[in-house]
Nucleic acid binder design. Structure first.
Lengths: 200, 200
DNA sequence: GGCCTTACCGACAAAAATGTCAATAGAGCG
DNA sequence: CGCTCTATTGACATTTTTGTCGGTAAGGCC
């Protein structure tokens, strides 16, 4: 009498990767990027350690793939948000909110910080492409005067979203302010700046 | 014939801690906080692994002690800077510059990010105390109208300095802007805000 | 049905890192 | 000088984690 093994599931490479990355996202949200250990990821996805390595090469590969995936999803959401607003200020505000959401609430900033600290940041080229796409959208919709101003503005938005997403909650608590305060202030700053740029 | 051993150096507890933390600072600058391994720290300080543990209890203890030390040094520098400026805007600008320097150039943001990710952030109570001291200084020198405005302002400054210090360089490079650009913009935002608060 | 590609897996190897423990040796002090 | 305190140490145990390897089986294709 042979021991029962759970039947193997054979997925397409894309489905297998997606399955693993979805598990990663849950782990990232629950325990942070440092918990993206090979064994935990594999367990979360319901596959063996070796399977994860088969698809991503290394645990670092898993992490950068997760970052890329989150950035792609963010760009899609921003594109949708842009379509739902007629005015520049509304568009940018909605985009900024999506940005803060992806990096703050959904754990993107913590993952980005992890990549930055482990020297994997250079592989985040997905960000460059994403920014180019969003910038192209804005140039098309808003036809702003100055392209470097757009780039500077996006640099500010992204960096602030990352900083607030990673440190905002802890700092607010440590300094005795409400946890969401820093995000409000940051969004105010961003909207004030865009108003100033478009208005004057 | 006995094997030559290097003579032991016996330091006071304070000197021993200082020696170890100085080595940590060098490692932090050169390789980042994830390189603050027990063996490397001990080697950098020229002592045995067990010695480090004797003084700090654990490698996490070393890291939080280093953070505390950096924050103390920062507060001292800010106090000096405050004394060298007569006007509020000049004072705050100099303080912000010191803040960005400590967190950016000197590696404080990377260390803070590490503590945040590894769950050690709650032990960064040194920040709370530091902010209280600086806030007290400002209340005394500038007698600003609103204390919560001061707290909000410091929350913004600290969070931005952390965000820019950790992500600024990489993001600027990724988005095709000069590496120091984000810092300039951030300082502009801060000074504009303080001018607005004091001016009107 | 038979074959071939490759997604998948268990077992194992190997490295890296932290922390424990008992012993050693400076340095102050009577 | 001899005693005591404790900073210091080497050796070691343990844990954690990544990655390799040879074999297994699922599903497409002829």
């Amino acid at each position: 009498m042979s021991i029962e093994r759970p039947a193997r599931i054979r997925r397409s490479p894309e489905a297998a990767r997606e399955n693993i990355l979805a598990a990663c996202e849950a782990i990232l949200l629950e325990k942070g990027p440092q918990a993206l250990k090979l064994a935990d990821v594999a367990a979360g996805a319901g596959v063996a350690n070796a399977t994860v390595l088969h698809h991503f090469g290394s645990i670092d590969g898993v992490q950068t793939a997760l970052m890329t995936r989150m950035i792609r999803q963010l760009v899609q959401r921003i594109a949708v948000d842009f379509g739902q607003h007629q005015d520049t200020v509304g568009r940018v505000g909605a985009g900024a909110r999506a940005l803060f959401d992806a990096f703050g609430t959904r754990g993107g900033a913590r993952l980005a910080a992890w990549l930055e600290l482990t020297g994997e940041a250079r592989r985040m080229t997905a960000i460059r492409q994403a920014v180019q796409e969003v910038a192209a959208l804005r140039m098309q919709l808003d036809s702003p005067v100055d392209e470097t101003a757009v780039q500077d503005f996006m640099l500010v938005c992204v960096t602030m979203a990352l900083g607030v997403g990673l440190f905002g909650e802890t700092m607010a608590e440590l300094l005795g302010r409400p946890p969401e305060r820093i995000r409000e202030i940051a969004l105010d700053l961003i909207e004030a700046r865009i108003r100033q740029e478009t208005g004057g």
